[in-house]
Amino acid sequence: MSRIAYVNGQYVRHAEAAVHIEDRGYQFADGVYEVCEVWQNKIVDMPRHLDRLDRSLNELRIDWPMTRSAVEFVLREVIRRNRVRDGLVYVQVTRGVSRRDHFFPPEDVAPSIVVTARSTSPKAAEAQAGKGIAVVSYPENRWPRVDIKTIALLPNVLAKQNAKEQGGKEAWYLDGDGNVTEGGSTNAWIVTKDGVLVTRPAESGILRGITRAAVLDLVQKEGLTFEERPFSLEEAFDAKEAFVTAASTLVMPVTRVDGKTIGNGHPGSVATRLRELFHTATDLRAV
């Protein structure tokens, strides 16, 4: 079966999907995106993701390319046409196609929208979670507005490639004080030896992760002790557990940081439990 993408009003074969060379997403990375998990034929936390898409668009002064309800319909339709039961659905909105110029284009230029979906393997994801992943630290090199989920991801690409070349699956950014901000495509967490969950506040310096928010809901529901504060790399080395969260990873245990073993070198009980319970704390909308 050929994969299907939605591009500016048309459902087309994925292999033939294209946007104009003067789309501002291509020319300037002038756009935003969201990724939702699809779990057992349900879209996970779609309202929260679209709320964040709305915020990102507003921060960059880009109009919605269609009504929100129409976007919801397209998300579902792309998932259905690709027969995705478990996987990811991706929506990207740019400022549109216009002559290359740093200034915003004329008001009659419509935003561009692309939606794609693909299946993932729950079995492979669980196998990875059963082993845990390694992360590699990297100096913070992004623009300050990382709270906006933009498509300008070159710094993230470089950080994650550096991690890959050192045997890691994810990067952890370090700020000027040596504290962990977040991952290249995830939020970062530790569990102290006293059993306290720690993750950096989302007021500034990190993306307000949707999966992060769901995990915080779950943490409170389970009565776990947590703190939203910065933590240092040294504190991570000394932690009982570490993990990352994102729609693409859910709760993924971290067993090594910069080559140092975290805890006993195996996925911790807190991260494992949060992963098992994750979908009980999410909004599930049928495809």
Rank of each mutant, 00 (worst) to 15 (best):
L153H: 00
N156A: 08
D63I: 05
E165V: 00
E165K: 13
V109D: 14
A163R: 00
R142S: 05
L60Q: 04
R100T: 13
P144L: 13
D101E: 15
P111S: 07
Y138T: 10
V71W: 00
T150K: 12
R61V: 11
S56A: 08
V136N: 09
A129R: 15
M66A: 12
V146A: 08
P144Y: 13
V74L: 03
Y138A: 03
D175V: 04
P122F: 07
V74M: 05
I79M: 09
I79K: 01
T120F: 05
K131A: 03
L153G: 00
R145Y: 12
V136C: 02
R61S: 11
T116L: 14
T150A: 08
L158T: 08
N179V: 00
V91H: 01
L75V: 02
K123V: 13
A163D: 01
D175T: 00
T94D: 02
A163W: 02
K131R: 09
D101A: 15
Q92L: 11
D177Y: 11
A152G: 15
A159N: 08
Q161I: 09
P105H: 07
D177C: 10
E126A: 12
I151F: 14
I151L: 06
T94L: 06
T67C: 02
G178Q: 04
V91Y: 05
P111L: 10
I133L: 08
Y138L: 06
N58T: 10
R118T: 12
T67R: 09
E126I: 07
L53D: 03
A127W: 04
L57F: 11
N58A: 14
W172A: 01
R118Q: 10
Y138R: 02
D54K: 14
V97Y: 13
T67M: 01
G167Y: 05
W172C: 01
P65I: 11
R76Y: 00
G176C: 11
I62W: 03
S121Q: 08
V115L: 07
A70T: 10
G168E: 02
E72D: 03
I113F: 08
